[in-house]
Write a protein that binds this DNA or RNA. Structure first.
Length: 446
RNA sequence: GUGGCUAUAGCUCAGUUGGUUAGAGCACUAGAUUGUGAUUCUAGGGGUCGCGGGUUCGAGUCCCGUUAGCCACCCCA
Protein backbone atom coordinates (compact mmCIF):
# COMPACT_ATOMS: atom_id res chain seq x y z
CA UNK A 1 0.00 0.00 0.00
CA UNK A 2 1.15 3.53 -0.76
CA UNK A 3 0.63 5.87 2.14
CA UNK A 4 -1.90 8.52 1.09
CA UNK A 5 -0.48 11.90 1.98
CA UNK A 6 -0.03 15.43 0.70
CA UNK A 7 3.11 17.53 0.41
CA UNK A 8 4.04 20.08 3.04
CA UNK A 9 2.08 23.24 2.43
CA UNK A 10 -0.27 21.55 -0.06
CA UNK A 11 -3.82 20.73 0.99
CA UNK A 12 -6.94 18.90 0.00
CA UNK A 13 -10.12 20.92 0.03
CA UNK A 14 -13.16 19.05 1.37
CA UNK A 15 -16.62 20.19 0.30
CA UNK A 16 -17.22 22.37 3.37
CA UNK A 17 -14.00 24.34 2.76
CA UNK A 18 -14.30 24.24 -1.02
CA UNK A 19 -17.84 25.65 -0.86
CA UNK A 20 -16.74 28.48 1.44
CA UNK A 21 -13.87 29.20 -0.92
CA UNK A 22 -16.01 29.20 -4.03
CA UNK A 23 -18.47 31.51 -2.36
CA UNK A 24 -15.73 34.09 -1.79
CA UNK A 25 -14.41 33.62 -5.31
CA UNK A 26 -17.92 34.30 -6.61
CA UNK A 27 -18.09 37.48 -4.56
CA UNK A 28 -14.68 38.65 -5.75
CA UNK A 29 -15.66 37.95 -9.35
CA UNK A 30 -18.87 39.92 -8.93
CA UNK A 31 -17.14 42.93 -7.32
CA UNK A 32 -14.33 43.04 -9.88
CA UNK A 33 -16.82 42.85 -12.72
CA UNK A 34 -18.92 45.60 -11.16
CA UNK A 35 -16.00 47.98 -11.89
CA UNK A 36 -15.47 46.63 -15.38
CA UNK A 37 -12.45 44.42 -14.76
CA UNK A 38 -12.35 41.59 -17.30
CA UNK A 39 -11.13 38.06 -16.60
CA UNK A 40 -7.92 36.67 -18.06
CA UNK A 41 -5.89 33.54 -17.46
CA UNK A 42 -2.26 32.58 -18.06
CA UNK A 43 -0.38 29.27 -17.87
CA UNK A 44 0.78 27.85 -14.56
CA UNK A 45 4.20 27.20 -16.12
CA UNK A 46 6.40 29.86 -17.66
CA UNK A 47 9.91 29.90 -19.07
CA UNK A 48 12.21 30.23 -16.10
CA UNK A 49 13.78 33.43 -17.47
CA UNK A 50 10.37 35.12 -17.46
CA UNK A 51 9.89 34.42 -13.78
CA UNK A 52 13.43 35.06 -12.55
CA UNK A 53 13.95 38.13 -14.69
CA UNK A 54 13.27 40.71 -12.04
CA UNK A 55 12.78 38.48 -9.07
CA UNK A 56 14.72 39.12 -5.92
CA UNK A 57 16.93 36.45 -4.38
CA UNK A 58 14.03 35.63 -2.12
CA UNK A 59 11.60 34.82 -4.89
CA UNK A 60 14.32 32.90 -6.72
CA UNK A 61 14.76 30.66 -3.69
CA UNK A 62 11.03 30.07 -3.39
CA UNK A 63 10.43 29.35 -7.03
CA UNK A 64 9.44 25.83 -8.01
CA UNK A 65 11.58 25.04 -11.05
CA UNK A 66 12.46 22.06 -13.16
CA UNK A 67 13.48 20.92 -16.59
CA UNK A 68 10.53 19.82 -18.67
CA UNK A 69 10.31 16.85 -21.05
CA UNK A 70 11.66 18.92 -23.89
CA UNK A 71 14.68 20.06 -21.89
CA UNK A 72 13.28 23.56 -21.28
CA UNK A 73 14.01 25.32 -17.99
CA UNK A 74 10.59 26.16 -16.58
CA UNK A 75 9.11 27.50 -13.36
CA UNK A 76 5.70 27.54 -11.70
CA UNK A 77 4.29 31.02 -11.25
CA UNK A 78 4.80 32.36 -7.71
CA UNK A 79 2.45 35.30 -8.19
CA UNK A 80 0.10 36.63 -10.84
CA UNK A 81 1.89 39.93 -11.36
CA UNK A 82 4.95 38.68 -13.22
CA UNK A 83 2.92 36.54 -15.64
CA UNK A 84 0.65 39.56 -16.15
CA UNK A 85 3.66 41.68 -17.04
CA UNK A 86 4.67 39.13 -19.68
CA UNK A 87 1.03 38.95 -20.83
CA UNK A 88 0.85 42.71 -21.26
CA UNK A 89 4.10 42.86 -23.18
CA UNK A 90 2.61 40.37 -25.64
CA UNK A 91 -0.97 41.55 -25.87
CA UNK A 92 -1.35 45.16 -24.77
CA UNK A 93 -1.20 46.46 -28.32
CA UNK A 94 -4.26 44.43 -29.20
CA UNK A 95 -6.06 45.16 -25.94
CA UNK A 96 -5.43 48.88 -25.78
CA UNK A 97 -5.08 51.01 -22.68
CA UNK A 98 -6.27 51.58 -20.10
CA UNK A 99 -6.82 47.88 -19.61
CA UNK A 100 -8.53 46.44 -16.54
CA UNK A 101 -8.22 42.77 -15.74
CA UNK A 102 -8.80 40.38 -12.88
CA UNK A 103 -7.10 37.04 -12.51
CA UNK A 104 -7.95 34.43 -9.90
CA UNK A 105 -5.58 31.50 -9.93
CA UNK A 106 -3.29 29.23 -7.99
CA UNK A 107 0.34 30.18 -7.36
CA UNK A 108 3.21 28.23 -5.76
CA UNK A 109 6.00 29.25 -3.43
CA UNK A 110 8.39 26.83 -1.78
CA UNK A 111 8.65 28.73 1.47
CA UNK A 112 8.08 27.66 5.02
CA UNK A 113 4.48 27.17 6.04
CA UNK A 114 2.44 28.72 8.81
CA UNK A 115 -1.18 29.42 9.60
CA UNK A 116 -2.72 30.89 6.46
CA UNK A 117 0.57 30.47 4.60
CA UNK A 118 0.82 27.57 2.22
CA UNK A 119 3.02 26.51 -0.66
CA UNK A 120 0.05 26.30 -2.98
CA UNK A 121 -2.45 29.08 -2.62
CA UNK A 122 -4.74 31.22 -4.64
CA UNK A 123 -4.52 34.89 -5.45
CA UNK A 124 -7.30 37.10 -6.74
CA UNK A 125 -5.58 40.00 -8.48
CA UNK A 126 -7.06 42.98 -10.24
CA UNK A 127 -5.10 45.72 -11.99
CA UNK A 128 -5.65 48.75 -14.15
CA UNK A 129 -2.78 49.08 -16.58
CA UNK A 130 -1.76 51.88 -18.88
CA UNK A 131 -2.92 54.92 -16.94
CA UNK A 132 -1.41 57.13 -14.26
CA UNK A 133 -4.77 58.65 -13.37
CA UNK A 134 -5.44 59.01 -9.63
CA UNK A 135 -8.95 57.80 -10.42
CA UNK A 136 -7.48 54.34 -10.99
CA UNK A 137 -5.78 54.52 -7.57
CA UNK A 138 -9.08 55.51 -6.01
CA UNK A 139 -10.91 52.68 -7.75
CA UNK A 140 -8.33 50.23 -6.45
CA UNK A 141 -9.09 51.25 -2.88
CA UNK A 142 -12.83 51.23 -3.53
CA UNK A 143 -12.68 47.71 -4.97
CA UNK A 144 -10.79 46.48 -1.90
CA UNK A 145 -13.40 48.12 0.29
CA UNK A 146 -16.39 46.78 -1.65
CA UNK A 147 -14.85 43.34 -1.75
CA UNK A 148 -14.31 43.08 2.00
CA UNK A 149 -17.79 44.42 2.62
CA UNK A 150 -19.35 42.00 0.15
CA UNK A 151 -17.61 39.12 1.89
CA UNK A 152 -19.55 40.17 4.95
CA UNK A 153 -16.72 41.65 6.96
CA UNK A 154 -17.54 44.59 9.16
CA UNK A 155 -14.40 44.93 11.26
CA UNK A 156 -11.56 45.67 8.89
CA UNK A 157 -9.24 48.57 8.21
CA UNK A 158 -7.67 49.58 4.91
CA UNK A 159 -4.32 51.23 5.49
CA UNK A 160 -2.91 53.41 2.75
CA UNK A 161 0.35 55.19 2.23
CA UNK A 162 2.32 56.59 -0.64
CA UNK A 163 5.81 55.41 -1.38
CA UNK A 164 6.80 58.91 -2.42
CA UNK A 165 6.28 60.24 1.10
CA UNK A 166 8.91 57.86 2.42
CA UNK A 167 11.08 58.23 -0.65
CA UNK A 168 11.07 62.01 -0.29
CA UNK A 169 12.05 61.87 3.35
CA UNK A 170 14.72 59.26 2.71
CA UNK A 171 16.20 61.39 -0.04
CA UNK A 172 16.23 64.43 2.21
CA UNK A 173 18.00 62.37 4.87
CA UNK A 174 20.52 61.07 2.35
CA UNK A 175 19.24 57.51 2.73
CA UNK A 176 17.91 56.94 -0.77
CA UNK A 177 20.48 54.23 -1.38
CA UNK A 178 19.38 52.26 1.62
CA UNK A 179 15.67 52.67 1.04
CA UNK A 180 14.89 48.96 0.71
CA UNK A 181 16.48 48.06 4.05
CA UNK A 182 15.01 51.07 5.77
CA UNK A 183 11.52 50.46 4.43
CA UNK A 184 11.63 46.83 5.51
CA UNK A 185 12.63 47.86 9.01
CA UNK A 186 9.86 50.43 9.20
CA UNK A 187 7.40 47.85 7.91
CA UNK A 188 7.94 45.90 11.14
CA UNK A 189 6.38 48.61 13.28
CA UNK A 190 3.16 46.64 13.42
CA UNK A 191 4.95 43.86 15.26
CA UNK A 192 8.13 45.29 16.79
CA UNK A 193 8.48 48.19 19.24
CA UNK A 194 9.76 51.55 17.97
CA UNK A 195 12.92 51.01 20.03
CA UNK A 196 13.61 47.70 18.31
CA UNK A 197 13.05 49.25 14.91
CA UNK A 198 15.35 52.15 15.84
CA UNK A 199 18.04 49.64 16.76
CA UNK A 200 17.61 47.89 13.43
CA UNK A 201 17.80 51.20 11.61
CA UNK A 202 21.03 52.00 13.41
CA UNK A 203 22.37 48.67 12.22
CA UNK A 204 21.67 49.81 8.67
CA UNK A 205 23.81 52.90 9.33
CA UNK A 206 20.99 55.34 9.95
CA UNK A 207 21.94 58.14 12.32
CA UNK A 208 19.97 58.59 15.53
CA UNK A 209 18.53 61.89 14.34
CA UNK A 210 17.41 60.39 11.05
CA UNK A 211 15.93 57.39 12.86
CA UNK A 212 13.94 59.71 15.10
CA UNK A 213 12.55 61.52 12.07
CA UNK A 214 11.63 58.25 10.36
CA UNK A 215 9.95 56.88 13.44
CA UNK A 216 7.97 60.01 14.09
CA UNK A 217 6.83 59.76 10.49
CA UNK A 218 5.96 56.10 10.59
CA UNK A 219 4.08 56.22 13.87
CA UNK A 220 1.77 59.06 12.90
CA UNK A 221 -1.89 58.22 13.36
CA UNK A 222 -5.21 59.87 13.82
CA UNK A 223 -7.77 61.59 11.61
CA UNK A 224 -6.56 61.82 8.00
CA UNK A 225 -6.50 65.60 8.03
CA UNK A 226 -4.17 65.67 11.04
CA UNK A 227 -1.90 62.99 9.62
CA UNK A 228 -1.71 64.78 6.29
CA UNK A 229 -0.77 68.05 8.01
CA UNK A 230 1.94 66.32 10.04
CA UNK A 231 3.24 64.52 6.95
CA UNK A 232 3.36 67.82 5.12
CA UNK A 233 5.67 69.21 7.78
CA UNK A 234 7.97 66.20 7.81
CA UNK A 235 8.43 66.02 4.03
CA UNK A 236 9.25 69.74 4.02
CA UNK A 237 10.06 70.94 0.51
CA UNK A 238 10.96 67.55 -0.91
CA UNK A 239 9.18 67.56 -4.24
CA UNK A 240 8.68 63.80 -4.24
CA UNK A 241 7.40 63.84 -0.67
CA UNK A 242 4.91 66.61 -1.43
CA UNK A 243 3.62 64.70 -4.43
CA UNK A 244 3.00 61.71 -2.16
CA UNK A 245 1.16 63.76 0.43
CA UNK A 246 -0.94 65.39 -2.27
CA UNK A 247 -1.81 61.99 -3.71
CA UNK A 248 -2.91 60.73 -0.31
CA UNK A 249 -5.00 63.81 0.21
CA UNK A 250 -6.71 63.38 -3.12
CA UNK A 251 -7.23 59.68 -2.49
CA UNK A 252 -8.85 60.21 0.90
CA UNK A 253 -11.09 62.90 -0.53
CA UNK A 254 -12.20 60.56 -3.29
CA UNK A 255 -12.85 57.78 -0.81
CA UNK A 256 -15.08 60.07 1.23
CA UNK A 257 -16.89 61.32 -1.87
CA UNK A 258 -17.58 57.73 -2.87
CA UNK A 259 -19.51 57.19 0.33
CA UNK A 260 -17.07 54.94 2.17
CA UNK A 261 -17.64 55.07 5.91
CA UNK A 262 -15.26 57.25 7.92
CA UNK A 263 -12.46 55.31 9.54
CA UNK A 264 -12.56 52.47 7.01
CA UNK A 265 -9.59 53.86 5.13
CA UNK A 266 -6.78 55.36 7.21
CA UNK A 267 -3.36 56.75 6.41
CA UNK A 268 -0.60 54.62 7.87
CA UNK A 269 2.84 56.01 7.01
CA UNK A 270 4.49 52.79 8.15
CA UNK A 271 2.96 50.75 5.33
CA UNK A 272 5.77 50.26 2.87
CA UNK A 273 5.14 46.86 1.23
CA UNK A 274 8.14 44.67 0.82
CA UNK A 275 8.01 44.63 -2.95
CA UNK A 276 10.23 47.26 -4.45
CA UNK A 277 8.27 47.76 -7.66
CA UNK A 278 5.68 49.92 -5.93
CA UNK A 279 6.24 53.62 -6.58
CA UNK A 280 3.09 55.42 -5.47
CA UNK A 281 0.04 54.59 -3.42
CA UNK A 282 0.36 51.37 -1.39
CA UNK A 283 -2.46 49.58 0.43
CA UNK A 284 -2.82 46.85 2.99
CA UNK A 285 -5.95 45.66 4.73
CA UNK A 286 -6.35 43.91 8.06
CA UNK A 287 -9.04 42.17 10.03
CA UNK A 288 -9.43 44.25 13.19
CA UNK A 289 -10.03 41.11 15.22
CA UNK A 290 -7.01 39.30 13.83
CA UNK A 291 -4.22 41.75 13.01
CA UNK A 292 -1.56 39.07 13.49
CA UNK A 293 -2.88 37.31 10.39
CA UNK A 294 -1.27 40.02 8.29
CA UNK A 295 -2.69 41.78 5.30
CA UNK A 296 -5.43 39.92 3.48
CA UNK A 297 -5.65 42.28 0.53
CA UNK A 298 -2.72 44.38 -0.59
CA UNK A 299 -1.59 46.35 -3.56
CA UNK A 300 -0.32 49.61 -4.92
CA UNK A 301 0.81 51.66 -7.87
CA UNK A 302 3.80 50.88 -10.00
CA UNK A 303 5.47 52.88 -12.76
CA UNK A 304 6.52 50.26 -15.17
CA UNK A 305 5.07 46.80 -14.97
CA UNK A 306 6.62 45.14 -17.96
CA UNK A 307 9.93 46.95 -18.44
CA UNK A 308 11.76 43.65 -18.65
CA UNK A 309 9.69 42.41 -21.54
CA UNK A 310 8.82 45.48 -23.60
CA UNK A 311 9.95 49.05 -24.26
CA UNK A 312 6.41 50.33 -23.91
CA UNK A 313 6.04 51.93 -20.48
CA UNK A 314 3.10 50.41 -18.65
CA UNK A 315 2.19 52.16 -15.44
CA UNK A 316 -0.58 50.62 -13.42
CA UNK A 317 -2.24 50.06 -10.12
CA UNK A 318 -3.75 46.95 -8.61
CA UNK A 319 -4.18 44.73 -5.60
CA UNK A 320 -4.55 41.12 -4.63
CA UNK A 321 -6.87 39.28 -2.28
CA UNK A 322 -5.18 36.46 -0.39
CA UNK A 323 -8.14 34.16 -0.26
CA UNK A 324 -6.43 31.29 1.57
CA UNK A 325 -5.18 33.58 4.29
CA UNK A 326 -8.61 35.18 4.52
CA UNK A 327 -10.29 31.78 4.81
CA UNK A 328 -7.86 30.76 7.56
CA UNK A 329 -8.77 33.96 9.40
CA UNK A 330 -12.50 33.51 8.95
CA UNK A 331 -12.26 29.94 10.18
CA UNK A 332 -10.34 31.05 13.25
CA UNK A 333 -12.96 33.69 13.96
CA UNK A 334 -15.73 31.10 13.58
CA UNK A 335 -17.18 33.11 10.73
CA UNK A 336 -17.25 30.32 8.18
CA UNK A 337 -20.63 28.88 7.44
CA UNK A 338 -19.72 25.24 6.91
CA UNK A 339 -22.22 23.33 4.83
CA UNK A 340 -21.33 20.27 2.82
CA UNK A 341 -23.78 20.59 -0.02
CA UNK A 342 -24.39 23.15 -2.71
CA UNK A 343 -27.98 21.94 -3.12
CA UNK A 344 -30.88 23.58 -1.32
CA UNK A 345 -33.40 20.77 -1.33
CA UNK A 346 -33.11 17.11 -0.37
CA UNK A 347 -35.70 14.88 -2.01
CA UNK A 348 -36.33 11.80 0.10
CA UNK A 349 -36.49 8.48 -1.78
CA UNK A 350 -39.42 7.10 0.22
CA UNK A 351 -41.10 4.44 -1.85
CA UNK A 352 -39.32 2.70 -4.70
CA UNK A 353 -42.62 2.08 -6.52
CA UNK A 354 -42.68 5.83 -7.15
CA UNK A 355 -39.19 6.18 -8.59
CA UNK A 356 -40.54 7.58 -11.86
CA UNK A 357 -42.53 10.21 -9.93
CA UNK A 358 -39.48 11.26 -7.93
CA UNK A 359 -37.44 11.62 -11.09
CA UNK A 360 -40.17 13.74 -12.68
CA UNK A 361 -40.44 15.91 -9.58
CA UNK A 362 -36.67 16.40 -9.33
CA UNK A 363 -36.49 17.34 -13.01
CA UNK A 364 -39.33 19.84 -12.62
CA UNK A 365 -37.74 21.48 -9.60
CA UNK A 366 -34.34 21.69 -11.29
CA UNK A 367 -36.01 23.14 -14.34
CA UNK A 368 -37.38 25.81 -12.02
CA UNK A 369 -33.85 26.78 -11.02
CA UNK A 370 -33.63 24.85 -7.76
CA UNK A 371 -30.65 22.68 -6.82
CA UNK A 372 -32.11 19.33 -5.80
CA UNK A 373 -30.40 16.21 -4.52
CA UNK A 374 -32.45 13.05 -4.90
CA UNK A 375 -31.27 10.31 -2.57
CA UNK A 376 -30.31 7.27 -4.66
CA UNK A 377 -31.51 4.56 -2.26
CA UNK A 378 -34.94 3.92 -0.73
CA UNK A 379 -33.46 3.63 2.75
CA UNK A 380 -35.23 4.43 5.97
CA UNK A 381 -36.63 7.93 5.98
CA UNK A 382 -35.06 8.76 9.33
CA UNK A 383 -31.62 7.94 8.01
CA UNK A 384 -32.11 10.00 4.91
CA UNK A 385 -33.27 13.03 6.90
CA UNK A 386 -30.39 12.65 9.31
CA UNK A 387 -27.90 12.67 6.47
CA UNK A 388 -29.63 15.66 4.90
CA UNK A 389 -29.41 17.60 8.16
CA UNK A 390 -25.77 16.68 8.63
CA UNK A 391 -24.88 17.86 5.15
CA UNK A 392 -26.50 21.20 5.84
CA UNK A 393 -29.48 21.06 3.49
CA UNK A 394 -31.90 23.85 4.44
CA UNK A 395 -34.92 21.74 3.52
CA UNK A 396 -36.17 18.29 2.57
CA UNK A 397 -39.17 17.22 0.55
CA UNK A 398 -40.95 14.09 1.79
CA UNK A 399 -43.50 12.41 -0.47
CA UNK A 400 -44.59 8.85 0.36
CA UNK A 401 -47.39 6.72 -1.06
CA UNK A 402 -49.95 8.39 1.23
CA UNK A 403 -48.92 11.81 -0.06
CA UNK A 404 -49.00 10.66 -3.65
CA UNK A 405 -52.51 9.30 -3.09
CA UNK A 406 -53.65 12.56 -1.50
CA UNK A 407 -51.78 14.82 -3.93
CA UNK A 408 -49.77 16.40 -1.13
CA UNK A 409 -46.14 16.73 -0.06
CA UNK A 410 -44.32 17.51 3.14
CA UNK A 411 -41.85 20.36 2.95
CA UNK A 412 -39.56 20.05 5.95
CA UNK A 413 -37.42 22.91 7.18
CA UNK A 414 -34.40 21.00 8.46
CA UNK A 415 -33.17 23.81 10.70
CA UNK A 416 -36.44 24.25 12.59
CA UNK A 417 -37.81 20.71 12.01
CA UNK A 418 -41.12 22.29 11.01
CA UNK A 419 -43.11 20.46 8.35
CA UNK A 420 -45.45 22.24 5.96
CA UNK A 421 -47.99 20.40 3.83
CA UNK A 422 -48.12 21.34 0.18
CA UNK A 423 -51.27 20.55 -1.85
CA UNK A 424 -50.25 20.05 -5.42
CA UNK A 425 -52.94 17.68 -6.73
CA UNK A 426 -50.48 15.94 -9.00
CA UNK A 427 -49.63 19.19 -10.80
CA UNK A 428 -45.84 19.48 -11.01
CA UNK A 429 -45.94 23.22 -11.72
CA UNK A 430 -47.95 23.84 -8.57
CA UNK A 431 -45.49 21.74 -6.57
CA UNK A 432 -42.45 23.52 -8.02
CA UNK A 433 -43.95 26.94 -7.33
CA UNK A 434 -44.83 26.00 -3.76
CA UNK A 435 -41.38 24.55 -3.05
CA UNK A 436 -39.77 27.59 -4.60
CA UNK A 437 -41.68 30.00 -2.37
CA UNK A 438 -40.97 27.86 0.69
CA UNK A 439 -37.25 27.98 -0.07
CA UNK A 440 -37.51 31.72 -0.60
CA UNK A 441 -39.06 31.96 2.82
CA UNK A 442 -36.17 30.10 4.40
CA UNK A 443 -33.63 32.28 2.61
CA UNK A 444 -35.42 35.44 3.69
CA UNK A 445 -35.54 34.18 7.24
CA UNK A 446 -31.75 34.08 7.43
C1' G B 1 16.32 28.17 5.17
C1' U B 2 17.24 28.67 11.09
C1' G B 3 15.29 27.80 16.10
C1' G B 4 11.22 26.06 19.60
C1' C B 5 6.65 23.11 20.67
C1' U B 6 3.51 19.06 19.15
C1' A B 7 1.94 14.06 16.79
C1' U B 8 -2.46 8.01 20.41
C1' A B 9 -9.62 5.69 16.69
C1' G B 10 -13.17 9.84 11.75
C1' C B 11 -13.09 14.20 15.84
C1' U B 12 -11.61 15.91 20.97
C1' C B 13 -8.44 13.77 24.27
C1' A B 14 -6.80 10.12 28.70
C1' G B 15 -2.83 6.62 29.19
C1' U B 16 0.94 6.69 36.38
C1' U B 17 8.50 6.12 37.98
C1' G B 18 8.95 2.00 30.93
C1' G B 19 5.32 -3.66 32.59
C1' U B 20 0.00 -8.35 30.26
C1' U B 21 -4.90 -8.36 24.96
C1' A B 22 -4.03 0.67 24.37
C1' G B 23 -9.08 3.40 26.71
C1' A B 24 -13.24 7.33 27.09
C1' G B 25 -16.74 10.79 25.02
C1' C B 26 -18.65 12.19 20.46
C1' A B 27 -19.21 10.31 15.47
C1' C B 28 -20.20 5.90 12.41
C1' U B 29 -22.91 0.88 11.21
C1' A B 30 -26.97 -2.53 12.55
C1' G B 31 -31.18 -3.45 15.59
C1' A B 32 -35.24 -2.37 19.36
C1' U B 33 -39.01 0.89 15.75
C1' U B 34 -41.02 -2.34 7.28
C1' G B 35 -43.59 6.52 7.58
C1' U B 36 -39.85 11.12 9.65
C1' G B 37 -33.48 14.10 12.30
C1' A B 38 -34.62 13.53 19.23
C1' U B 39 -34.06 10.50 23.69
C1' U B 40 -33.02 5.69 25.66
C1' C B 41 -31.19 0.77 25.26
C1' U B 42 -28.45 -3.33 22.76
C1' A B 43 -24.79 -5.05 19.51
C1' G B 44 -20.81 -3.93 16.11
C1' G B 45 -16.77 -1.96 13.05
C1' G B 46 -12.57 1.04 13.41
C1' G B 47 -5.75 2.23 16.16
C1' U B 48 1.31 -0.54 12.17
C1' C B 49 0.32 4.74 19.21
C1' G B 50 2.94 9.84 12.34
C1' C B 51 7.16 6.98 10.06
C1' G B 52 12.26 4.63 10.65
C1' G B 53 16.08 3.16 13.83
C1' G B 54 18.27 2.64 18.86
C1' U B 55 18.44 1.60 24.41
C1' U B 56 15.94 -2.36 27.36
C1' C B 57 14.01 -8.81 29.51
C1' G B 58 10.07 -5.35 28.00
C1' A B 59 8.81 1.19 24.61
C1' G B 60 2.57 4.76 23.38
C1' U B 61 6.14 6.21 27.47
C1' C B 62 13.40 7.09 27.10
C1' C B 63 17.22 8.51 22.94
C1' C B 64 18.40 9.68 17.63
C1' G B 65 16.69 10.56 12.77
C1' U B 66 12.67 11.70 9.55
C1' U B 67 7.82 13.52 7.89
C1' A B 68 3.78 16.72 8.97
C1' G B 69 1.30 20.68 11.86
C1' C B 70 1.71 25.02 14.95
C1' C B 71 4.85 29.26 16.87
C1' A B 72 9.10 32.82 16.30
C1' C B 73 12.79 34.71 12.71
C1' C B 74 12.78 35.68 7.41
C1' C B 75 9.50 36.98 3.79
C1' C B 76 4.77 37.61 2.32
C1' A B 77 -1.29 36.51 0.42
Amino acid sequence: MIEPRTLKGFRDHLPAQALAREKILDIARRVYRSYGFAPIDTPALEYLEILTGKGSEETDKQLYRFTDHGGREVGMRFDLTVPFARFCAQHIAALGTPFKRYHMATVWRGENTQRGRYREFMQCDFDTIGTTSPVADLEMVLVVHDLLRAIGLEKFTIRVNDRRVLAGVLAALGLAERSTDVLRSLDKLGKATPAAVAAELAAHGVTAAAATTLLSLATLEGPPADVLAALGKIVGDSETGRAGVAALEQLLAGVAQSGVGAGRVVIDPSIARGLDYYTGIVVESFLDELPSLGSICSGGRYDNLAGLYTKQPLPGVGASLGIDRLLAGLEELGRLELVETPAELFLVFFDDKHLADYLRIAAELRGGGMAVEFFPEAKRVGQQLKLAAKRGFPAALVIGSDEFAAGTAQFKNLATQVSTTIDWHGDLHVLADAVHSQLEGIRAGH
